[in-house]
Design a protein around this nucleic acid. Structure first.
Length: 565
RNA sequence: GCGCCUAUAGCUCAACCGGAUAGAGCAACGGCCUUCUAAGCCGUAGGUUGCAGGUUCGAGUCCUGCUGGGCGCGCCA
């Protein structure tokens, strides 16, 4: 519908260029917006306003010309019942009733394919998210990353991309060493308050769990590895391997409970083992962007917009973290991912410039803005009216598992994905628990469940219908609520496309609330199971289409669509 | 001091590459269940979009300055 009008506008612009009304270089991005006020019709374009200057006419005069020309198009006449010029020069389109209801058979015919796009054209995209180091359970911040990252993946899959979900972690650095030392201390029977407890040790109670399992020679099976405890208190390397596997498994269980599944786990140590770090360093040296100073090797990242140069190789001979980071991203590029999205917490935003600078310095013709980043702002957790400070080492923080257990997977996912990533998030646990009935996710799920219930009862009463029967009677869907609902249904494809293109899952969540609101309003305004077979069939068809779109939308957020509450 | 994000109703947040009278939920107030699920609906109230300028037909949105909040600014990751 929208496409039809846009195509007509495009044709018109080209025709007017040929006639000399518009200059030949006039190429506006055609805008056809959903209106906020129904008095302004269904769709509106600002073409007369945007093109007034180019055409040398007053906006309203130009609008008159445009409308006259559009009215001469017979195809448009079928879809548009009325065009009006309003305000400073907007052209408002009022859609014909049968054009609106045509969305119902389209939805039901296309089924699960409805609204899906092909923008990705089957191209590969890699999305890296969560990427938590295995030094403790996942916390709420990781949860936000998991919710946003996974929803992004679902949106990209729905728009024709071949998505790889990847989780990168450091299994060999200083923090992992701290972890191993902490577990070793527990293995030897020490507690966090003991004077000889490691200075930077992890104090959380879960360290004790690791130690007990290690001594019991448990075999740990994580998604990407399997390790058996050696039970030897002196074998720090064995403790380290065991602890990493143990905490990886814990994270995997949390992610599984959260409905997130990765295609690949990427170990930082593999970059060293396969010589990729060393290779990256050598290439950077060859490219001439490095220099030695103060016993360290530096990369001239200031050549690529950084505010200071960065150390690559420390005086102790080890590499700083950003070198394997660059090696990892080179590897992504070499694997053929021309599109890569990194979803991370905003506290790591300084790595963006560094990684991109390193990639530029490699001279591989990697595009300057590659890879894409989606940064989410910090999550503040409130419990009992107080802010809970997140501190891994102190061991006091809210885990993702806590949230899933207390609030539920659906509500947690929705809550964490429903807000723009750029916005800071306050998660009040008491509120989420005590008022869970008023959580927006239930509002949407309830709309879905209600429509399922209607379908069940129609079935019980023998009110059968088919799409073929429904199509001729859809013109009976004339009430205010039905018209409104039809419009919202028609917006699903464009909402999906926008959310995917702009990497903003919250747009889908926002849309679903609006769609659910339109559903509830309709539900309360009219009966479905009425005597009049034509009206009943039309309404049942609309209900089925709405139910389907609600389920599709919830699926894109990774939230379930229950058939009853 | 520098960089990134941010400031919208009492609270939590939206607002479609600049569009018409800035919208939802929660909280408040008033209505609606002998009818398909009241986890719902309908209505009322609530705003100088942090402040001051600028750009233009038009600014919550873009630019400049200021103020407040968050996060970074390591030879940690």
């Amino acid at each position: 519908m929208k496409d039809l009008i846009l195509a007509q506008l495009q044709q018109l612009v080209e025709a007017l260029q040929a006639e000399g009304v518009f200059p030949a270089d006039f190429s506006p991005t055609l805008q056809l917006d959903n209106t906020k006020d129904k008095a302004h019709g269904d769709l509106a374009t600002n073409l007369a306003l945007a093109g007034a200057k180019a055409a040398g006419q007053k906006p309203r005069d130009l609008a008159n010309l445009l409308v006259a020309r559009l009215q001469a198009q017979p195809e448009l006449g079928k879809a548009v019942s009325k065009m009006e010029i309003a305000g400073p020069g907007f052209i408002n389109f009022f859609l014909a009733q049968d054009a609106l209801s045509a969305i119902v058979p389209r939805i039901l015919n296309e089924g699960a394919q409805f609204g899906l796009g092909q923008q990705g054209q089957g191209q590969k995209v890699q999305v890296e998210f969560v990427s938590a180091n295995p030094t403790g359970p996942l916390h709420i911040g990781h949860g936000r990353g998991a919710a946003i990252g996974d929803c992004l993946c679902r949106l990209l899959e729905a728009t024709g991309w071949d998505v790889t979900r990847e989780f990168y972690y450091n299994d060999a650095g200083a923090q992992i060493n701290n972890l191993a030392l902490s577990v070793q201390a527990r293995v030897k029977g020490l507690g966090p308050d003991d004077p000889s407890w490691p200075a930077d040790g992890y104090r959380g109670a879960y360290i004790q769990d690791v130690a007990v399992a290690y001594l019991a020679k448990e075999t740990i099976t994580a998604d990407d590895q399997q390790v058996t405890g050696a039970a030897d208190p002196e074998d720090l390397d064995a403790i380290r391997r065991f602890a990493v596997a143990f905490l990886r498994r814990e994270q995997d269980l949390d992610l599984q409970a959260f409905g997130v599944q990765f295609d690949r786990y990427f170990l930082e140590s593999s970059l060293y083992a396969e010589g990729r770090v060393e290779e990256t360093v050598q290439r950077l040296i060859q490219q001439g962007y490095t220099y030695e100073e103060g016993g360290a090797l530096w990369l001239r990242t200031t050549d690529f917009g950084d505010d200071k140069d960065r150390v690559m190789r420390k005086t102790d001979g080890g590499y700083t973290y950003f070198v394997p980071d660059v090696a990892y991203h080179l590897n992504k590029w070499q694997r053929g991912f021309t599109k890569v999205i990194n979803e991370q917490g905003a506290d790591h935003h300084s790595t963006i410039t560094r990684v991109r600078a390193g990639l530029q310095a490699l001279g591989e013709n990697i595009p300057q803005g590659w890879p894409d980043y989606v940064l989410h702002q910090m999550v503040t957790v409130m419990r009992s009216g107080e802010e809970v400070k997140i501190s891994k080492r102190a061991g006091s923080y809210v885990t993702l598992r806590d949230l899933i257990d207390e609030v539920g997977c659906d509500a947690t996912r929705f809550f964490l994905a429903a807000r723009a990533a750029t916005s800071q998030l306050t998660f009040d646990i008491d509120l989420a628990r005590s008022q869970s009935n008023e959580n927006p996710v239930y509002y949407i799920q309830y709309a879905h469940a209600r429509l399922c219930s209607v379908a069940r009862q129609a079935e019980d009463k023998g009110y059968r219908w088919s799409l073929a029967e429904a199509e001729p009677v859809l013109e009976t869907l004339v009430s205010e609520q039905e018209q409104q609902l039809l419009k919202w249904l028609a917006r699903f494809p464009e909402t999906l496309a926008r959310a995917a293109t702009e990497l903003e899952p919250h747009q889908m969540a926002q849309y679903l609330r609006d769609l659910a609101a339109a559903t509830h309003s309709w539900y309360n305004a009219q009966q479905f199971l009425v005597e009049d077979a034509a009206v009943r069939t039309a309404r049942l068809a609309l209900a089925a289409a709405t139910r389907q779109v609600l389920a599709q939308g919830l699926g894109l957020l990774g939230v379930s669509a229950p058939e009853q509450m």
